[in-house]
Each structure stands twice: as structure tokens, then as C-alpha cells.
Design a protein around this nucleic acid. Sequence first.
RNA 1: GGAGAGAUGGCAGAGUGGUCGAUUGCGGCGGUCUUGAAAACCGUUGACCUGAAAGGGUCCGGGGGUUCGAAUCCCUCUCUCUCCGCCA
Length: 426
Amino acid sequence: MIPLNIIREKTDWVIERLAVKNFKAADTIHAICELDDKRKETQKSMDGKLAEANALAREIGILYKSGKAAEADQMKQQSATLKEEARVMSEQLATLQNELNALHVTLPNLPHESVPIGKSAEDNQIVKEEGGIPELPENAIPHWDLATKYDIISWELGSKVTGAGFPFYKGQGAKLQRALINFFLEEGISAGYGEIQPPLLINEDSGFGTGQLPDKEGQMYHCTVDNLYLIPTAEVPITNIYRDVILRAQDLPIKNIAYSNCFRREAGSYGKDVRGLNRLHQFDKVEIVQIANPEKSYEILEQMVEHVSNLLRKLELPFRILRLCGGDMSFTSALTFDFEVWSAAQKRWLEVSSVSNFESFQANRMKLRFKDENGKTQLAHTLNGSAMALPRIVAALLENNQTDEGIRIPAALQKYTGYSMIVQNR
RNA sequence: GGAGAGAUGGCAGAGUGGUCGAUUGCGGCGGUCUUGAAAACCGUUGACCUGAAAGGGUCCGGGGGUUCGAAUCCCUCUCUCUCCGCCA
């Protein structure tokens, strides 16, 4: 959530900035300000009543002790009145607070000043493009056919046992998955990230903390019996470690990396977008998360972008980096860079990573703070990025590296796969 | 799943109805001493709301109740520990 004091102090500016995300905020913002005024007023008068009641209770105590019970009994009536008044006000206060919150949570994060204006993915800004686009022979085929040809992924078994979007990985395919996971983790650990294995189910508070709830409830698998959600990304459990925590300035930045399965319902997608590995309900991802001092967060965002770039270079995949426009950014992000790899047989770019700075938006929701150099507690910044999501990397590796002899594995990956080529009939 | 015990400030640990937001120890921070450090000694040290400030209010796992007054009593939920059962 955008901190309330910013909404109060820079009201017009907030409305202006949210317009970049194509969000018309004026009515909501003004309603919030009004409710906040009422809230303060009510709180003040309630505090006054409570202060009187407290003073009275103290007096009554003293009177009883000194044996003046009759006098004390008289004062009880007065106290009851005060208490009733305070109770009414506290109910009003709760109502106001609820109304205010309900509006507050509907506001998306403020976009960073560098975010381009735009409505959709077409308005994203290409920051950089790297690596040559490979020329494939005439008989090149897309990854879903390659996967079947080499018997490394079974779509049919997935549909049979679970449903579409839940493939089985087999043999060299399963080993490739494991190799990529290890590769990404080891690269991250070398870059100073601490490895964590999180739970795959999270509770409601955690879903709220990182912003999946209440906004994107339908995107997550929900175990209603226990009211737990399957994680859509390791970002959720890893960031929520620091929910309701006050860190010390010297603890920052905190750098964590986690491999996890990710589960997404992806309601409403169809067609070529979901073919093969392009979009799955369950997939593997290695995620990097940082908790940062606000002064350093954009520097850190750059470092994370560089980290992901290096992974793609080592995998010898052509990629481009996009600066997302206001209309294509997520609800929670202040600035996002997307990474796309070229999938040579499909002849299209596939998103494989998204690196974002959330500034204090998540931190405010989950009360993640730190004590700065002056001993003041303030909200930290949170950042995260995929480093990386496996399926589309696999798609690009398969398609781009297909040869008549088999599928070539990039050198950097071979020590993890234990083989240099995916071949038939193993 | 069954039985019992417990949840207090960064940690440890007092406090069982009345100036308790909370004794004390450790840790942290500042200082004295020292060439420097350690030790010792002195001081300081929770969060949130409101307020220019002084001040006021709220918070002793969460929620509700009893009472003039609750960390302290009652109800309820969650979590932790011990024992039993089950189990990768």
C-alpha cells in the first residue's frame, strides 16, 4: 500500500502518478483523505474520554484504599458514562478504519518516474537486445514436438494424471530440469544470495503481505479445508519471512534465493500462448529476493538485472530487456524489467524473468521496517526477480539448439546435466 | 488425533486485580577510565496512533467478556513444549 502520509502530503501528485498506470484515483484518494480526517477527529475525542476514565479509575482506587468507599461508589456512575461514550466512539473508529482500508488496498503502487506511459505490452520500452538470433534449418520443429521426439516430456501423462498444464518430465528432460535448478541456485549463491527452501503453501496474511490477496485471489490454488494457498512464486513465502519485523540498518541488504514449484491457475488463457511449455499451471522457478535500504534499492535493482543477464549469457540464449510501461506493470510494482528469450522455432519472444522494485508497497502491507542510522524506524524496500523460470528457458534451449544429431547443451550447463547432447532412444 | 503445560520488551526471566508499559540480568547504544581494546563504573535502550510541542491514547500471542480499574480473573482461537498414538 502507498503509505498514508504520502497520500496526505502529496495528494495531487499521487493522483497524477497513478494515472501513468491508467488508474483513475482522484475519487478514491479524496475519499481516503476525508475518512482519515474523520478518523483522527474521532480518535482524539475517544482518547480524551479514555484519559478521563483512566484518571477517574485511579482516583477511585485511592479512595477505596483510604477507606472512603461511599465517595468512590458515587464516582462509578460517572465512569460508566465515560466508558459508554468511549465505546460508541471506538465503534465509529473501527468503521471508519475499515472503510478507509477498503479503499486504500485498491490503490496500486506508484510507478517510478522512469516508467514509460502506455496501455499494453506493445508500449513497453526495449532497453537492450543481446545475442544473435539463430537461423534454424528448414526442418526445425517447436519444442513441444522436440520434447516428444526425444521423449523428455510427456504431455499426455500430465493430462491423464492431473490435467493440461501439468507435464511429466522424463529421463534427460528431468535431469535437465534438475541441472537448471542447480545452475541457477549456484550462480545465485556465488553472487551472495542465501539459499532457502520455503513452504509451498501460505496463509492469508502472507498472501496479503506481498499483494496477491485480495487482488488476485483467483490466480492461486486454494486449499479451502485449511484455508491455505499454493504459492504462485517463492516471492510470497520468502518476502513474508520479514513480515512484522524491524531490521537493523546494518542487516541490509538481505539477499535470499529460493527454488520452488510455482502454481498458477492462469484462468482465461488459451491458444498458442499455452502450447507446450509456454504456460503451465505448475512450473519450477528460482527466485531472488532482496530487502533493501530505500536509498539503495534502485542500485540493487540494476544489480539484479545484471545478474539475470549473466545467467542468459551463460546459457547462450538471445534475450532482450524491457522496461514495462504503466499499463503493463503489476499492481504492486514501482518499476519492472522483463526479460524475454528468443524461441527460434516458434519465432517469438518468451518472458522468462521479471525483476521488480516494489519500494515500500509490500513493506507497508506487511510492516517490514528497519531502524535507520538515526534510530528512526522506517519502511524498507523489497525487490525480487526470477532467476529464473524454467519452462520457457527449456523451450528456448530445445528449439534454438536443435541439430540433426540431437539437442546441444550450452557449456555452462554441462557440469550439471552430465551430458552435452540430448539424443534419441536413451 | 488424545492428555497436560505454556505464550510478558532483541534475548533470558519477574510480575496473579490498583500510579505496571511493566523489577532484574544479558545484549545494544552513549560516556568515564585507557595509547587502543577488554574489564569496571555511570547513563540510556520497545512499537503504534494523535499532537508544532508539552501531553494524551493503545499494545504483556489474537479476539471477546467480567470490573470503577486487568499482564494478572473468565471464554474462545492460534501457536509452542512434554507425553501417547500415527507416520515419510
